Measured scan of single mutants.
Amino acid sequence: GPREVTMKKGDILTLLNSTNKDWWKVEVNDRQGFVPAAYVKKLDSGTGKELVLALYDYQ
């Protein structure tokens, strides 16, 4: 199956793709996968990378 990404509340993840309104593709610890968009919030990183903050645990 697809590689699952797990996250804990407060984690910072790299946002790869947010074109789908329900599932965003993120990368964390060299793993890529989809997380519910409602579970993360975009951060203003000030760099080229888009980052998101995990609002809830997800696994």
Rank of each mutant, 00 (worst) to 15 (best):
A38K: 13
G1L: 12
N29A: 10
P36F: 04
V35F: 01
L13H: 03
Y58I: 03
R31W: 15
L16C: 05
N17F: 05
P36N: 03
F34I: 06
G1H: 14
V35P: 01
S18A: 12
A38G: 09
Y58R: 01
Q59P: 15
L55N: 02
D30S: 09
V5H: 05
L13G: 07
S45T: 13
K42G: 04
K49D: 09
R31C: 10
E27R: 07
W24T: 02
N20W: 05
F34W: 15
N17M: 07
N20K: 05
E27A: 10
V28I: 15
A37W: 02
D44C: 14
V26F: 02
T47G: 14
R31K: 12
Y58D: 01
L43W: 07
V26T: 01
L13M: 09
L43D: 02
V28Y: 12
D44K: 11
G48W: 06
D22R: 13
V52S: 01
G48Y: 07
K41S: 09
Q32S: 10
K25G: 05
Y58N: 01
A37N: 02
K21M: 08
G10L: 01
T19Y: 08
P2Q: 13
L16E: 01
K41I: 13
V26Y: 00
F34Y: 15
T47A: 12
K42W: 06
K25F: 15
A37D: 03
E27C: 13
E50S: 13
A38L: 09
K21A: 10
N17G: 08
V26S: 01
L53D: 00
I12F: 05
Q59K: 11
N20H: 12
W23Q: 02
K49A: 10
K41F: 09
E4L: 14
I12Q: 04
T6V: 15
Y58E: 00
E50R: 12
E50G: 09
D11N: 05
T19N: 11
G48H: 08
P2W: 15
M7C: 04
I12L: 07
K49Y: 08
K21T: 09
N17W: 06
S18W: 08
V28S: 12
Y39T: 06
L43H: 03
V28M: 14
K8I: 07
V52F: 05
T14I: 15
D11V: 04
G10D: 05
S45D: 10
A54N: 00
Y56C: 13
P36L: 05
S18D: 14
L15N: 00
N29M: 08
S18K: 08
T6Y: 14
T14R: 10
R31A: 13
M7W: 06
K42H: 07
A37L: 02
S18Y: 07
L51N: 05
D30A: 09
Q32T: 13
K9N: 03
D57P: 06
L15T: 01
G33L: 15
D11G: 03
K42L: 12
D22W: 15
D11A: 05
V35T: 01
K9E: 06
M7F: 15
G1D: 12
P36I: 03
T6Q: 11
V5I: 15
P36D: 02
Y56S: 08
L43V: 10
L15E: 00
L51A: 06
R3D: 13
T14G: 05
E27K: 08
Q59D: 13
T47Y: 11
G10F: 04
T47N: 15
Q32D: 06
A37P: 04
F34N: 03
E4C: 14
V40Q: 00
L53E: 12
L15W: 01
Y58S: 01
V52N: 01
V40W: 02
V40H: 00
P36Q: 04
G48L: 08
Y39P: 01
V52P: 00
E4H: 15
V26C: 03
I12H: 04
N17C: 12
D22Y: 15
S18G: 09
P36V: 04
K25D: 03
L15S: 02
A38R: 13
D30P: 02
D57R: 03
P2G: 14
K49Q: 13
T6I: 14
N20F: 06
A54S: 04
T47Q: 13
T6F: 15
V26N: 00
A38C: 12
L53N: 02
P2F: 15
L51V: 09
K25M: 15
E27G: 07
A38V: 09
E50L: 11
G33M: 15
K42P: 10
W23C: 08
E27M: 11
K25S: 07
L53Y: 08
V35N: 01
D11P: 00
A54G: 02
R3K: 12
I12G: 00
D22F: 15
T14M: 09
Y56M: 12
S18T: 09
L16K: 04
K41P: 02
N17I: 07
P2L: 14
S45Y: 12
K8Q: 08
Q32M: 10
F34V: 06
Q59H: 13
V28D: 05
L55T: 04
P2N: 15
K21P: 14
Y58F: 10
V35E: 01
L15Y: 02
